[in-house]
Design a protein around this nucleic acid. Structure first.
Lengths: 340, 340
DNA sequence: CTGTTAGCGCGTTCAC
DNA sequence: GTGAACGCGCTAACAG
């Protein structure tokens, strides 16, 4: 039965005081470099690491503000759940979270700005935002001492501590992979606003992997976001091109209109459709075979990662974090239920 | 600025003592039921929960023993990593782990028994086993006061606290899904020992989902585990049946011999092969298109889950856990690198 | 059944 | 630059 080793026992061993040992592990404290070195070496030999719980116990609570500016309910609900899960795991480290969910129907961007002002003024250690891309507003946070983290959408590094998104290049590649596995050769790409980083990165990796797999992307189609109902347009678009393609990849979240159009004109399995994300409305098309598979961004995991990494950074368990790019998941008829 | 609420402030509020409040949250302690009720109610009103860190701080360290009886290195390496990751997240709760890895080439089952004896005799709170299925040996643990948890292979509930495996039924269904998406109709199933729960459950769900998707499983083939090299047998087997099938699902981990046989006789994409798990040797066949996709069991996550859930149970953060059945992941050329 | 008190392992004042 | 002492929030041991 080896004796339990703490800063006290270590100090005794080294003929130093507990506070010296304590300080050795905190780079911001003043301590004779020579002493520090000896202590860290000894700690290493004993395999000793300070208990972060006991340490947090005597330190201040860390506050993190969450702003979700939500458009699509199932989407931001996942975000919320992910944050709550991460918070629950970390709450014992004295980490508090102040979650504000503003549905877009009811709140303006000015309301968002007010929330961020509030966070900053309360001197929260960190702020997580999702669904708000206006850099003028986000500056409220990035110009303050609060650390900014973006979920779902990548922000430039100089504005934020890091972003937690899915991997866009991986998504494009994986879509191409599966279309090739299905033996498809001539593909259509339905995408969102191509000027956005997100969609252009997905497009590029999709095109590249398609070529690598000897497939042709015959056309790229981005309907304007402002159009409220794509159904008719999509229907005409697809009808005109019937026979010139055998696979479709839809990167936009608004896939339903396109699915409907496909279903009208094709039997299940006649062409292969790969969509993005899962939500109640799309499961119908997965079930009936209109959509063969979805690439799921896992917003839950993105939010969870964002909160966890930010919190650990704030309590100094990690250095400055990298951007996080989560690998999306393939979803088919059998497993969508796990992620809905 | 609301005052921070602790067992002391709560006690004051209720005209009771801190220890009464403390006891109220531990069901095993003696306390006037009436008092307990009042305290719990008040706590609920204030949204107060005892800080589990501070609580653990004054309690004994929990010891967990890990026994990995390993056959295939990449496999048990993942298990080890998963355990270590979970342990790292929980170490602050004063949870220690004693990991013993016994490669099968060097150690007998008697050696395993000795390790388990050691764990039990040291009164470890819990024991995680992987790769050892002999119930006579496992009884050493399940008859003791240490809680037994099985990773990768399901043990009967009366023997263990819970098992952490992948979902067998999900695996079978997902394999069928993807074969259908690829437009396949007549399938071969290569499986392991069908008398084992694992393989029979996968088989059953595969057959069921295949039928649901209007596909035929023309033959089920389980080569004896004792055979050291399946290559020739597999080659003959496949040659004889050429033209009678267009898809293969391999549930056994030893897929390489079958892949080799397929590669010799088919061009990439001529038939669709779905394999199980990923490891260095199989990536070659994924790259060249012999294998279209793998269903990955994620041993890392299984081990991580096992350790985490067991630890949280032992420190009373959770009630008696359910068996864990993780959804396997689809792997293709682009994303295998993430899980290797 | 209940109250008191001494730690659990560490960071942080504040004197020195 | 360095050490002593207090406190973080809670439980255990003991005395009542």
């Amino acid at each position: 039965m080896e004796k339990k080793i703490t800063i006290y026992t270590l100090a005794e061993e080294l003929q130093m005081t507990p506070s010296a040992v304590s300080r050795a592990f905190n780079p911001n404290t003043r301590l004779d470099p020579e002493k520090r070195k000896r202590i860290l070496e000894a700690a290493d030999r004993y395999g000793f690491r300070p208990n972060r719980m006991a340490s947090r116990l005597s330190m201040d609570t860390v506050q993190i503000g969450i702003l979700i500016y939500g458009g699509f309910f199932p989407f931001y609900q996942k975000i919320e759940e992910g944050i709550r899960a991460a918070h629950a795991r970390l709450v014992d480290y004295k980490i508090e979270c102040d979650m504000r969910i503003l549905p877009r129907e009811q709140y303006s961007r000015e309301d968002c700005a007010a929330v961020l002002q509030d966070f900053v003024q309360k001197k929260y250690g960190g702020v997580v935002v999702c669904g708000l891309y206006d850099t003028n507003i986000l500056k409220i946070v990035s110009d303050s001492s609060s650390k900014l983290v973006s979920v779902h959408y990548p922000l430039p590094r100089e504005m934020c501590l890091f972003s937690s998104t899915h991997s866009f290049t991986m998504a494009g590649q994986m879509a191409a992979d599966i279309l090739q596995i299905c033996g498809r050769k001539r593909l259509l790409l339905f995408t969102g606003d191509q000027s956005s980083v997100v969609h252009s990165r997905i497009r590029d990796s999709f095109l590249k992997q398609a070529e690598h797999c000897s497939m042709q992307v015959t056309e790229i189609c981005d309907f304007p976001e402002t159009m409220t109902d794509w159904s008719e347009t999509a229907e005409g678009f697809i009808a005109e091109r019937k026979g010139t393609f055998d696979g479709i990849y839809i990167t936009t979240g608004r896939s339903i209109d396109i699915c409907r159009a496909v279903k009208k004109q094709y039997a299940p399995g006649e062409i292969t459709v790969i969509a993005t994300d899962i939500y109640t409305e799309i499961t119908e098309y997965i079930e009936d075979g209109t959509v063969s598979a979805c690439l799921f961004q896992n917003q839950y995991a993105q939010a969870e990662t964002a909160f966890e990494v930010l919190a650990k950074y704030l309590i100094k368990h990690t250095d400055i974090p990298e951007d996080k790019a989560l690998t999306p998941l393939y979803i088919t008829r059998s497993n969508y239920i796990e992620y809905l």
